[in-house]
Design a protein around this nucleic acid. Structure first.
Lengths: 343, 343
DNA sequence: AAACAGCACTCATCACTGGCGAGTGCTAAC
DNA sequence: GTTAGCACTCGCCAGTGATGAGTGCTGTTT
């Protein structure tokens, strides 16, 4: 895995990656020698570049163009070359003020955050609302609060509580509701919320669930209680992709937009990120998005007071300003975590 | 307003509009004469076309290309020329089955609808969830249902009910809640929900709202009760815009996406449509979207069992297949209304 | 007068061309 | 090991001319 490079090769590779990130155009030996004052002639640089190409770190689009970094090069770059920029005072200010300012509830804050990410990075900002569907079911309770209104209180093993108001077709007696609760509490112990939901749906479809009156009523209500809260996901700044020269061509674009249209893809992609702490980076095909698209993803997770975990990050071209975006994502995640634990 | 045209001119204009809708290319006199078997020579058609151009119904992109319809022509076309297609059996089937199939609550149905619209029309589908913020406030009630949980029940003059669960920082006595309710019921009579919300926010900011304990608590809670439910809006099929040849160029595209990014623009645009019944059509600049973009909008509203009004429709290029999209939008709106009143 | 054939004219599009310049790999010299 | 020099490749660009679709006008026919 570890790639062996002389210091000079590293320096040159870094120069190429950064140049390419900046200009989006193949960089030639001359440019490297000139811009980086390496006291090396272009010819020397050339021979080094030839080496790097052999190692699979560079490719040339055609004979007499410069070279462009491969995915492998980006990977190496972020792993061991990139010098992370500090988050500037101004950026910090923006992040914080945007977070605070957004008034309307969690959704509002997260949406605003997504927008801020997009603005600061100049790529696409993305935020996945925390949900505890991966948590383990601990306790559920149904409370009658009106003629046809039931309050469901769902508690997970991490202590997160989810209240849900359910309107029903007919009336339920309090004793019946208690029995329902007990039934579920007995049977669902140890499963994750997602599994619980799945199980309920299966039972609903089975014959037993169809003909047993009481059971059927129980299932119908509990399904609503456990239903995932729209797994909210906020994407902002889609238009910014169009700023990137490599996507100015329509076919390319279409691919990307289609990929994102099934947000399912994103959800799947992001749920992977939930597990690990800290900033995570997926480059090109590592994202397992429509391969050829040349997309990268920088994410970090954040937590809330109720211990649920959400995800935020930035999607951009592989040729992305890692040195500045990584710190921004990191800082934003911390801030959001802090903000959400205060409440 | 009424444009005077001889039958023949009308026929030729219709032919041109329909040809252009199909091919997206300037249509010349020859094509019209040939394709529509009008027993007219191209020369005659030419002179008619010259007339139409003078009337502002056609323009030529340059001397020796055919002509393309102006907005005015489209307007005239939909007003008095277009022959609406029937909704095919297959399309009906798709609309109905998609509506039914979508499981998860209102959001799910509407999202699926938006997707269906996009699929059938091959343009962008859009659905705005019904909200009763424009309704008039009639009654509000707070019910204590747990240590720190309050249920707010809000009723509008049309009989629509909105329940909302509120979690509070500290505990409230039932009597206090009753008093709070009375206070609001007295003061907010006759205002729309939107106005109520605005008033509450204003009072919160005023000195009185800051220092009067009871008032402050009342406002804080009622604000949450009245808060607009995220004015949900579902847009699907954005990628389909890229199928349209006129938008294959990146700059053009960007304009559009940026316009849509502030969904505010859409909301504003669509709230206009809410007032009138039946299918409404906005062509080009009539949409008051980024002018030059050549976008058209076909919408219709739908109603729910609780008398709230939503909006659905299709956004596409001005050069849109009106004859088939109009009926689809119309039919879908009817179906959704029916489906939502059943529940 | 309405319809039309004929004609000169305009102009986008396309394929082809040659010049240019950036960049390369190789080799021979320091 | 480093570098200057050189021949070579190839994308890009501007210019060229042929092609063809489409137009407006004019004079003739019915």
């Amino acid at each position: 895995m570890g790639i062996e490079l002389t210091p000079r090769s590293r320096q040159i590779l870094e120069a190429i990656v950064e140049d390419y990130i900046e200009t989006a155009e193949p960089v030639g030996s001359g440019a490297v020698a000139r811009r980086h004052a390496l006291t090396l002639s272009s010819a020397t640089v050339r021979s080094v570049m030839a080496n790097l190409e052999e190692m699979g770190l560079l490719t040339s689009p055609h004979t007499s163009a410069g070279r462009i970094p491969t995915e492998k090069a980006y990977r190496f770059y972020v792993d061991s070359l990139v010098a992370l920029r500090q988050v500037s005072r101004d950026e910090k200010r923006q992040i914080i003020s945007h977070c605070r300012h957004a008034g309307t509830g969690l959704s509002g804050i997260l949406k605003e955050t997504s927008r801020t990410l997009s603005q600061l990075s100049n790529y696409m900002g993305i935020v996945v609302a925390p949900s505890f569907t991966a948590d383990v079911f601990r306790h559920i309770e149904f409370i009658r609060i009106g003629q046809r209104k039931i309050l469901a209180v769902l508690v997970s093993n991490k202590g997160a509580v989810q209240n849900r108001l359910i309107e029903t077709g007919d009336d339920y007696a309090p004793e019946e509701l208690v029995r329902m609760g007990n039934y579920l509490n007995d049977r669902m112990q140890g499963l994750t919320i997602t599994q619980v939901r799945k199980l309920i749906l299966e039972e609903m479809a089975s014959e037993k669930g169809q003909y047993d009156q009481l059971l059927s009523r129980t299932l119908k209500i509990s399904e609503q209680a456990v239903r995932a809260e729209g797994d909210e996901i906020f994407v902002e700044g889609q238009a910014r992709i169009l700023d990137q020269p490599e996507f100015s061509d329509a076919a390319r674009m279409k691919e990307i937009y289609q990929a994102f249209e099934q947000k399912g893809v994103l959800v799947q992609l992001l749920s992977r990120c939930m597990s690990a702490e800290g900033v995570q980076i997926y480059i090109g095909s590592e994202t397992s998005l429509s391969q050829s698209a040349g997309i990268s993803l920088i994410t970090s997770r954040f937590v809330t007071s109720s211990n649920t975990v959400g995800m935020l990050g930035v999607i951009g071209p592989t040729r992305m300003g890692y040195s500045s975006v990584i710190p921004i994502v990191d800082y934003t995640a911390r801030m959001i975590s802090k903000l959400l634990s205060e409440v």
